[in-house]
Write a protein that binds this DNA or RNA. Structure first.
Lengths: 216, 216
DNA sequence: CGAATTTTCCATCAAATGATGGAAACATTG
DNA sequence: CAATGTTTCCATCATTTGATGGAAAATTCG
């Protein structure tokens, strides 16, 4: 029997999926406590009890959102790995950053939710305990910093985390930084890519394995 | 006549200051909506109405916290500039990163609050509008990327923002990443410094003015 | 000391928020 | 169609949360 989340992902027009989609946005913008079930229901245009009928407690809906986002990220990362595998390091970084930046800019709630999970605490213990794969080892391998997903040393993991944090923070902070710099979306996106490459390529280009096969 | 914030900063033992200090911590951990005035009052060990007596609305207290943190940061940045001015770029970065990382690790609520302001929205418009100097141009100048605080180009500002985001995200995410890596505080702090330098020094070391005078 | 001022706490309110029961609307199926 | 199951909404609750009035306690000052 499929979970509610699986049902929602299978049928994107269903009420479950529509609620989940809006919940992603609202939780992403306001955080767990800042978002209310009423805000989400209003966004969908339904009564609040319909929301509870489909997803149960607020916490369960939030958990579904996190799992949903994780699944999207997993799929996207596999896609990127497919594209860049076998290329030299600098090129691989260049392409990955382009693809992931574009992807996240279209779905900023992903970066928001990831950052909220890293940095913010919740008054609800059960939510804090919601531990999930963080893809750190996968990205380390896919980006060519290590030959295998297993036993990735911590200093490499940290570099991966740094790359991800940098990207997420630029995506999440779009509104803030654009108004700080007084620029439009397109210009900001270009600036983000340029800055990411300026910072990351010098550090990583001479590092890691080049070419080679797919990540085992 | 001094503002409540000025009074609190002048007398750190006063009730105003004690409340402000706890408010920093609680707002930093849980964000604006996640923090309640009752949580803060309980932390101080006072009745909630005493809190309201000293600081008025929740929003006003939050505003005071933001201004307080900004003032601390301003002071610290000036101190760092004093120490590193005139040194070559790589050395300047090396020293600044050490000092600022140590400083923020002692006061993680600063990083938390800064990140919450960048990324999260608030249901209260008046809080979102709370615009403050962000030191970006000052840091650009102090770190030697530009010769003067004025007319710093956007691509340079972005690099500064990147450095700050990276540092803040490591500080804010301490709990999360330490449990992800399974390491102790000291080891994590060392790893953070090492990673910051690994990433930032290659990109910036060959850039910007070296030596020279203080930032005008 | 005693009056005036400041600070603190108790009791309480109104609004917001998470959550639910039950009736109505809608859909499915024999 | 009628019976059954599913979905949606209205009304309502209990709790939490921001906020305040007023009495009591503490402090200041002539």
């Amino acid at each position: 029997m499929p979970t509610p989340l699986e049902k929602a992902r299978k049928d994107p027009d269903s009420m479950k999926a529509r609620i989940l989609a809006k919940a992603r946005q609202v939780f992403g913008q306001y955080g767990y406590h800042g978002a209310t079930t009423r805000m989400i229901a209003d966004e969908v245009g339904i009564d609040i009890s319909t929301l509870y009928y489909h997803w149960g407690e607020k916490r369960d809906l939030y958990e579904a959102v996190i799992l949903d986002v994780n699944e999207d990220l997993r799929i996207k990362l596999a896609e990127v790995e497919d594209i860049v595998h076998g290329r030299p390091m600098a090129e691989r970084l260049d392409i990955s950053l382009d693809i992931m930046t574009d992807y996240l800019f279209e779905r900023p709630e992903i970066s928001n939710l990831v950052l909220f999970r890293y940095f913010g605490k919740t008054r609800d213990e059960a939510i804090m305990d919601l531990s999930l794969p963080e893809f750190v080892s996968d990205i380390a391998c896919a980006s060519g910093l290590v030959p295998t997903r297993k036993n990735v040393p911590n200093h490499i993991k940290m570099r991966v985390v740094a790359m991800m944090n940098l990207m997420h923070s630029f995506v999440s902070g779009e509104d803030f930084f654009r108004s700080l710099f007084g620029i439009e979306r397109d210009e900001y996106l270009a600036l983000v890519k340029q800055t990411l490459k300026f910072i990351l390529i010098p550090a990583f280009a001479t590092d890691g394995r080049n070419g080679g096969t797919r990540c085992p």
